[in-house]
Design a protein around this nucleic acid. Structure first.
Lengths: 334, 334
DNA sequence: ACATGCTGTGTAAACGTTTACTTTTGTGCC
DNA sequence: GGCACAAAAGTAAACGTTTACACAGCATGT
């Protein structure tokens, strides 16, 4: 692969002149531009981004850590971030953490080593302490989907508690009283918050707590199916089910269908996330919208601002989920 | 951010020794390892990947161009690639092309400039000529989902023609004769191949061509809905519909449902891709499996082998799609 | 004719590493 | 104690750029 020296030699100028042409410096003659352009073309010259980064001390790159690129949730997040970046002439280096502490740490280190000046991190595996440390080390680092008490100004998160409260309250308002909750077996903050939102909503409406009506599973379709089957086989009688996320809701619906229980006629189901699939299920899933796109956009902007040292515009750091009414919930009729 | 010199100074050794410790060279004393490790910790030293790449002439990075990260199809592709890479200690630089020639070109150039030694490119916008040129410039570049006549050994693709033929043939075998085709309005090779597969399957079964039963739209749900509405409003009478992809099939089903036409009882529908949503639709979608995961894995392996100059193991370059029978197709009964 | 200023170009240092080569230190043996 | 040799550490060049600084050429104004 040819270098700037090769180009300079062929064009009969110095490397400085080539650099000036490449970077469109105003101090260059037409003649030089022509000679250099032709030489670059002839050698199919590609400026080495690493050398450039080294001397100019900037990579124009944002690093992003996601859980798993194949999950459409992260796809949506990445797209929002990419749109902000492309608008600002930055590009993206992406790492997958697979929700596992060591992978996450390693991926973040790669991003830092690559000298990404801004970072958006989605981590479920690392401790608050680890993440806080990274925040302090890298000025342009923003954490999404998590709340760190020591550095709240670096976090963009969702009010998970409120989302679940909202979902449960909606079921209550539709007359339901026997409401099960299908939760994630992962020991992470958002799972707890969502479960607590459910509990508190029940309590606030004078419905006694129903711990036996809570079942856990891996937060995917199989997990939802398993949890619902647990509930059914334990003889828990319910008229509505709230789930940790849409996938678990889908699994629960599949299980109910297999058991010849009609949704929403006999049992109402509500999800969480408003992901891609919620629109394609039938009945279309009533759910809680996780506004990942504006959140990701906000996170990207914040990371960019922090990285360039400008004081970030004040804007919301905790987003609120909203109810999306579709067809999987029906009022309870006697 | 501290450099290797800072570490050397603090540890009281030379930069070479620090480098040796960082790279786990065997020629280092316990004492040096300890001193350097402590200094690195104290300064939170991060080896600069750009400087490293510059001198060692390798980045350990694979570049990937996808259409749009938010599309689960590309998510699945990226995941397969990431799994291969992580296994080989490489990491990923990702660009979005948004199916637009200029964006694709720009993204590829960024990947090349960043000195990714291996590349997996999914392009719909660039011409065969452009792509072939890139292939010749970068030894470790592999094109996925496209067939370039000049460099077939660099391409991993799907037999789209066969997939569509298969789909149409299955409908014919179920007794259908009046079969519409919903195609993509994009002027790209795979759209043409799929349309032709449909036509040829009809012809092979002695069914006269039905050009009036072909409708086009943007290859998403809205496009499918629009195309189906076109068909219906033109008074085309059909008992089955084959679609360019699952999203268009979903749109067609939504349109049929609105018109009180039952799927599959009155009209059968078959998709293409076997994407995420096909499992969640109801009736669950009968479709053609696009084996993107093995294909992406293969592409990644090939790119890696080409990049390191080893002669690639011979393995399939053209993959064959298969039929996935679910519930959206029913035999025609009179 | 000469100082002045402007434009375009060249020279060389710097960025943070790795590594070939050289030098120093340490060990065991006679 | 002196020597041979191995092990460990240091020196400096190289990777491919950018850019401060210096300088040449030339037009301008006096």
């Amino acid at each position: 692969m040819s270098t700037i020296k090769d180009v300079a030699k062929l064009a009969g100028v110095s490397v400085a002149t080539v650099s000036r042409v490449v970077n469109r410096s105003p101090r260059t003659s037409e003649k030089a531009i022509k000679a250099v352009t032709e030489a670059m073309e002839a050698l199919s010259y590609r400026p080495n981004a690493n050398a450039r980064a080294l001397v100019s001390q900037t990579t124009q790159t944002m690093g992003v850590l996601v859980g798993d690129v194949s999950n459409p949730f992260f796809g949506a997040m990445l797209k929002s971030i990419d749109l902000v970046c492309r608008d600002q002439g930055k590009h993206l280096l992406i790492g997958n953490g697979y929700h596992e502490a060591d992978s996450e740490r390693e991926a973040i280190e790669i991003l830092i080593n690559s000298r990404c000046e801004s970072l958006v991190i989605h981590s479920k595996g690392l401790s608050d302490q680890d993440l806080t440390k990274f925040c302090k080390e890298v000025p342009g680092l923003v954490v999404i989907n998590r709340q760190l008490d020591e550095v709240p100004e670096r976090c963009i998160s969702l009010d998970n508690y409120k989302g679940s409260y909202l979902a449960t309250e909606y079921l209550l308002n539709q007359g339901h009283r026997d409401i099960a909750y299908i939760c994630s077996e992962h020991d992470i903050e958002d799972a707890d918050s969502r479960k607590q939102g459910y509990r508190d909503a029940l309590a606030a409406h004078g419905v006694s707590p129903q711990e036996h009506a809570i079942a856990c599973g891996y937060p995917d379709e199989q997990g939802g199916e398993k949890a619902m089957r647990d509930l059914l086989s334990r003889g828990v009688s319910v008229t509505a089910v709230a789930a940790y996320n849409d996938y678990m809701a889908a699994g629960a619906m599949a299980c109910l269908e297999e058991s010849d229980i009609a949704v929403p006629e006999q049992v109402s189901v509500i999800g969480f996330d408003d992901g891609l699939i919620s629109r394609y299920m039938k009945p279309r899933l009533t759910t809680i919208r996780y506004p990942i796109q504006p959140m990701a956009e906000q996170a990207a902007r914040l990371a960019l601002q922090l990285a360039q040292g400008s004081s970030p515009e004040s804007s919301p750091h905790v987003f609120v989920p909203t109810l999306v009414k579709r067809n999987s919930v029906k009022p309870l009729t006697h």
